[in-house]
Design a binder for these strands. Structure first.
Lengths: 336, 336
DNA sequence: TTGAAAGCGCTAACAA
DNA sequence: TTGTTAGCGCTTTCAA
């Protein structure tokens, strides 16, 4: 069970162990003949290089910390999948941790990642306050934030243009004939949600619509919170022909409430989401929504992080991606 | 940006660096006074112990490899979430990789994990053939398989009792009055699916029902494959009042096909799934299903792996958990 | 082209 | 109670 090391190889090959190291690293200062011979022996002896030892001397673990609020969330899990792919393609692996949207946890995880000598960190922060809370660590380790962003943070992040996303959502509904569009849902203290609300407001202004809100702040985004609020909303007289939900998850809660009240979507009102999580594409759900391009976000996050690590240049990048509208069947032309 | 080490601490504290090490590890052979003093200095200097260096000498990285076919799959992502929680609670972290259900990848990932000196591996294998393909590595590193199992594998695994799960599923449908139950879907070469089919067959035998199958082997489990097969099935004369789908994902495909054909569930036929993935609990879907207890599986997998690592005893464990039936609204009493 | 030796940051056995 | 030292497996100067 004891692993074979470079020394074992050296011994059976009858060379010094630095020669073995050279053979393995593909160094030019070694004869092709000995290289072949050594490589052959490595194979025979089932040698696997010890990445940990290498990391010690190279001062690089080729490990990236990935801190998510929770992989079980479908948005996060998709992100995680693509981050792994992209990172692996560039020779890095992922240490995954869940913060449970807890700022204290996030700090502990940074400490932990620092100790593990990861080369960089990708984090989906609990909220904008994470930027402040994590500040002391950000000078110690290259970090990129994904998803939640700050308006003017001096840190790298990649996010979607939430303002613009909301704007095109309203436009879409408008073009379908809707004039009474209610904006639904908001997570407390989230810049993302703030920006979406602003985009909605701006579009309403530009299109001469009256903005309507049903967005008491939720402590978190969940189907349940959306459901509870929607239940209340739908028990009253309807003043809208379409609802624009701040997130797909909220939209799902609305669907559930509508279902229970015998209200049909899109016949009785149209429903538009934001995020395009996996759930939204399921049969019977088929939620029309503004998409966050998760694969692209993952790829951009990894690239910008690795570029920073490898080029050793300080500074930061903001990458704002454009959301697109995914048409499914929860929106219909306004009935006349 | 250069990290402070134990030596820096020693220097400013005016002690040898082994003393610092002792202070940090909470060794008893050090005076309380110097310990306090050193700890204070560590805090002031922002010292973070280098886990990599520690791993080298301790010969333990406190890292667990987690190899999934893909975290983006909702079953996997839930498993991953709970595995992280449980592992962290026991002082371990997770290196996550996706195999994309590719046996060659799996082998490469084992090689990689071995190089990274992880203390153990948890893998959701591509299929039963992984046991064979991975055999050479299994003697080199403690491994536990989750999900897919082999009937008599001399390796540790945790899985649900698939046979029993299918059996109770049929019983449930039977008690609802159904006598014509069709079994739907199968993944090629999967022991899990094989066992479910056997459980179904046994229940039919015991309850004197005629088994009916619609289970051409799928290359993988996906909504699309389920949909395509269901489309075909539903275009014919119905010979059943209930369908038992091999997986929730297949059931989702059936739902979609039914939806398109104007066939109602559960009014026209009942639909029972297996797995209880997150999707199944969504509004409008509300799939009745046999649950795999994912949190428990995660917890058992981590515990059995760590127990093996820590106790250093060789051997293996099979842990088979009992599935339970989750009642939602895709099944109804047989119409008379 | 190869070998010897130092050192990465830490733990632990042995001395003092 | 504290210090000295060896060594974990590797890369990389510097010499030969």
């Amino acid at each position: 069970m004891k692993a074979v090391t470079i020394k074992d190889i050296a011994k059976t090959a009858g060379v010094s162990y630095s020669t073995v190291s050279r053979a393995l690293s593909g160094s030019p200062e070694i004869s092709a003949e000995t290289r072949e011979r050594i490589l052959e022996i490595c194979k025979q002896m089932n040698y696997t290089p010890n990445t940990v030892a290498r990391a010690m001397v190279m001062k690089s673990t080729k490990l990236l910390g990935l801190i998510l609020t929770g992989v079980n969330n479908p948005f996060m899990s998709e992100l995680a999948y693509h981050i792994d792919r992209q990172a692996r393609a560039r020779g890095y692996n992922i240490v995954l941790c869940n913060s449970s949207r807890n700022t204290e946890q996030e700090r502990e995880l940074f400490e932990l990642m620092l100790g593990r000598q990861v080369d960089g960190i990708i984090i989906c922060p609990s909220g904008p306050e994470s930027y402040e809370s994590l500040r002391p660590y950000l000078s110690r380790i290259p970090t990129v934030f994904v998803g939640e962003n700050l308006r003017e943070a001096p840190e790298s992040y990649v996010s979607v243009d939430n303002y613009r996303g909301a704007y095109i959502g309203v436009e879409y509904l408008y073009n379908l004939g809707h004039r009474d569009i209610l904006y639904f849902g908001r997570r407390r203290g989230s810049t993302t949600h703030q920006l979406r609300a602003e985009g909605y407001a701006a579009a309403c202004r530009d299109l001469q619509l009256t903005a309507q809100y049903c967005n008491n702040a939720f402590p978190a985004t969940s189907i349940k919170y959306g459901y509870q609020l929607a239940k209340q909303l739908l028990s009253q007289q309807r003043t809208f022909t379409a609802i624009f939900a701040a997130t797909d998850t909220n939209a799902l809660g609305i669907m559930q409430a509508a279902e229970e009240s015998g209200i049909r979507i899109p016949e009785d009102f149209s429903l538009l989401g934001f995020d395009n999580i996996r759930d939204s594409s399921l049969p019977r759900i088929q939620l029309t929504t503004v998409e966050q391009p998760k694969k692209m976000m993952a790829s951009v996050a990894v690239d910008s992080l690795l570029d920073r690590i490898q080029s050793e240049v300080a500074g930061y990048t903001h990458r704002i991606l454009m959301p697109t509208l995914i048409e499914r069947s929860s929106c219909a032309p306004r009935p006349f």
